[in-house]
């Protein structure tokens, strides 16, 4: 434990070093368009009530979009993985949809969903859909054949196989997909707000940039990053808690 703490503390030197380099570079540049960490801290202090309020709006949208994606994409992914031919055939379509950047599809989404909350939720759901779909697809079609044979030799019914074998064995991979999907919902919620700005942290960033308040913009980015770190840590803990058996089995014999 002691060694762990020491590593954690020593490790802090790396980001600290980068922050110092950044500060030095900023001091050398002497322009408000390249603010150093000091200026950003001041901007955080000045703007945090606004930023927190806007971030709240963004996080609500991100959760809604993620929820929509979970409800629709996990079943679809499992279906595609189970019905192999369909899944295989549709792979290029998934690849194609995965590479369309949000800014490119926004005009299209706007035609059908407008400029308000729904448009953004659709875009977020679209971005979250990709990892969820891919991972639940991969998980359900690559279940270890050994497990299927075990199920057969135990004479499990179809339903029992699904409940006792398929579901738990694809869960870790789906969880990974969910983690990636949460990350992309956060990313894309900000992007969508920058491109269809009404409110939210993305709009705040856009406004800061268009008014040349780079320090305020970086303060906003700092909060996005903080939200990301907290959400990821939370998800990781939940995953450990719910999938403890998977992590236990994964640990190499010591």
């Amino acid at each position: 434990m002691k060694r762990e703490t020491r590593i954690a503390l020593l490790g802090l030197l790396v980001p600290l070093g980068i922050v110092i380099l950044w500060q030095i570079a900023a001091l050398l540049q002497k322009t408000p368009l390249f603010p150093g960490p000091g200026k950003v801290v001041v901007a955080i202090w000045d703007n945090y009530p606004v930023i927190l309020h806007q971030l709240g709006i963004t996080l609500r949208r991100a959760s809604a979009g993620f929820a929509v994606a979970v409800v629709t994409m996990i079943p679809l992914g499992i279906f595609l993985g189970r019905v192999r031919v369909v899944g295989k055939v549709l792979e290029p379509l998934m690849d194609m949809l995965a590479t369309l950047p949000p800014p490119a599809i926004i005009p299209l989404v706007m035609l059908f969903a407008g400029t308000g909350d729904w448009a953004k939720i659709v875009i977020i759901a679209y971005a979250a859909a990709v990892p969820l779909l891919m991972n639940s697809y991969e998980a359900s079609h690559s279940i270890n054949p050994m497990l299927s044979r075990v199920a057969k030799s135990l004479h499990l019914s179809r339903l029992e196989t699904m409940r006792l074998i398929d579901w738990p064995s694809s869960l870790p991979m789906i969880a990974t997909g969910a983690r990636l999907a949460i990350a992309s919902s956060l990313l894309v919620s900000v992007t969508s707000e920058m491109l269809l700005s009404t409110n939210g942290i993305g709009t705040y960033l856009q406004r800061s940039q268009e008014n040349f308040r780079i320090d305020a913009g970086l303060a906003g980015i700092a909060f996005i990053s903080l939200a990301g770190v907290l959400v990821n840590a939370g998800v990781f803990r939940l995953e450990k808690k719910w999938l403890f058996w998977h992590y236990r089995d994964q640990r190499p014999a010591e």
Binding site: P103, L187, L205, G220, I221, I224, S225, G228, V229, V231
Partner: peptide
């Protein structure tokens, strides 16, 4: 750095 979208970085 991971949670920050490219669209947020570009303008800054």
């Amino acid at each position: 750095l991971q949670p920050i979208p490219p669209a947020a970085f570009v303008p800054m």
